[in-house]
Computed example of a mutant assay.
Amino acid sequence: MAKRYLLIGAGILIVIILLWWAGVRETLDLILTANPKFLLLAIIMYCISVLTWALRWATFLKSAKVSVSFLRVIEGVFIGIFLNNLTPGARTGGEAVKVLFIKKSSQNGSYSKVFATVMADRILDVIPVIAFMVLAFLYALTLHVKVLLIILGISALILTLIVLITTLLSVKEKYALSFLLKLFRLFKRIFPSKLTYTEETIREKLLKEFREFKATLIVLAKEKRRLASTLLYSFVLWLADIMKTYFVFLSLGSEVNLFQVLLVRMASMAVAMISVIPGGIGISEAVQSGLFLAIGIEKTVAVSVTMLDRLISFWTPTLIGGALAFKNKDVFSST
């Protein structure tokens, strides 16, 4: 726990240094003069991305015949965001909590069924990312900026590895069991007084439920019409995310094209996936600002856009998710 706080402190220090480098007064003055109309549009875009994420997951839950209200699904998304933003690297802590939350909130959900929907949700997220990454790569070629191509290549490589690992975990019992036990240990550290199962007991339960998980995943894959709708949700989600940043630029009176925003959003994905600092605090701000500089954005504008963007899509949902986790703490009181 102390190490986590030290890392978060280091991340906040990086943010302070970044603001100092860009000019604290200049950055704050620019942010305070943001056009409220475009800022509201940016917030709406983020809300649309969260709503479509919840709709996509709710569709998978319905296919798996897990009965749960849509409001609880939205709460689960925000609680997952909160826990993911406290987890470094690939940020899987929130996924475990989402599974537990929906299982406890549903009338007939099992851990294996809900976990299958979470895995399917993650896998399907990859398709639009690959499509947008290809577009970003083609645009980067026209700019002749090597650093952008290198960072995009790293993002693509990490994404490919995540897809391969996710697929492996979905079909191989040995590896899946090891992964789930790690999630169990992580969750037990977060809520030590709430989780009473021993590791041996949970191992036996996981072995029994793994077959149901695989069967559920197969059912989800065969639902062609629902897969089509969830794929549409995925594209809307990522497009709304890109538009959010675009509207943040417009709110600050800066002209930028969508391909520039797309390029930076796709390239900066690698940071979120490999950062050792929870939520990529500091690192994400520095890298995203640096990428905007690489495509010709003035430094004060680059830092101001990044700070506003992170306020909308990181700090605010983290606070909302934390409040919802506290509000629903009774859901995690029994297992």
Rank of each mutant, 00 (worst) to 15 (best):
A323Y: 01
F210V: 01
V271K: 06
V147T: 15
V99Q: 10
A10I: 06
Y46G: 13
G11Q: 09
L86M: 14
G280Y: 08
A156N: 06
L61C: 09
Q260A: 13
L250M: 12
R189N: 09
I162R: 01
A140D: 03
R4P: 02
F247R: 13
R265E: 14
S313N: 14
W315I: 08
L186K: 06
I295F: 10
S254R: 04
S313C: 08
A10V: 09
V50D: 04
V68W: 09
T167G: 11
L217V: 07
T117D: 02
L157R: 04
S229D: 04
F38Q: 09
F70Y: 12
K37E: 08
Q260P: 08
A10P: 03
S304P: 09
I8Q: 10
K113G: 00
V236M: 15
P88T: 08
L61S: 07
S333L: 13
I190E: 06
L239T: 14
T59P: 00
L61Q: 00
L86W: 06
L124N: 13
V271R: 03
Y139P: 07
V236S: 11
I79F: 00
L18R: 05
V118N: 05
V256Y: 03
L262F: 04
T306R: 12
E298R: 11
A96S: 13
E95L: 02
A131R: 08
L195P: 02
R310L: 01
I277V: 14
S229V: 14
L207Y: 07
R4F: 10
V118F: 01
L51N: 10
I79E: 07
P192E: 06
S193K: 10
L86D: 11
G80S: 11
I16S: 04
I295S: 06
L18Q: 07
A64R: 01
I102Y: 06
I295E: 09
L186P: 00
A221C: 00
L19H: 05
W20Q: 15
L195N: 08
L148E: 03
A176T: 05
T300W: 02
F179R: 04
A302N: 09
F70A: 07
I17S: 06
A270S: 15
S289T: 15
W57L: 01
W20C: 12
A215K: 12
I202H: 05
T52H: 13
L237F: 12
I127F: 08
K244V: 03
L149W: 09
W315S: 02
G80I: 08
V171C: 02
I16M: 00
G76Q: 02
A272V: 11
V134C: 06
I31F: 05
L239Q: 04
L206R: 03
L51G: 10
L324W: 02
T335G: 00
K327P: 03
G80Q: 13
F115K: 01
L30W: 04
V24S: 07
R211L: 03
I165F: 08
M1D: 07
V305P: 11
K104Y: 05
S333N: 10
N108I: 00
M307Q: 11
F332L: 13
L40I: 14
L168R: 10
I242V: 15
P317G: 08
V73T: 15
L195C: 06
Y46T: 07
I190F: 08
I154Y: 02
K214H: 00
V305L: 07
L141W: 12
K3I: 09
L124A: 12
I74A: 14
L86C: 10
L39E: 10
K224D: 02
E209Y: 00
V301S: 02
S105I: 01
V129F: 11
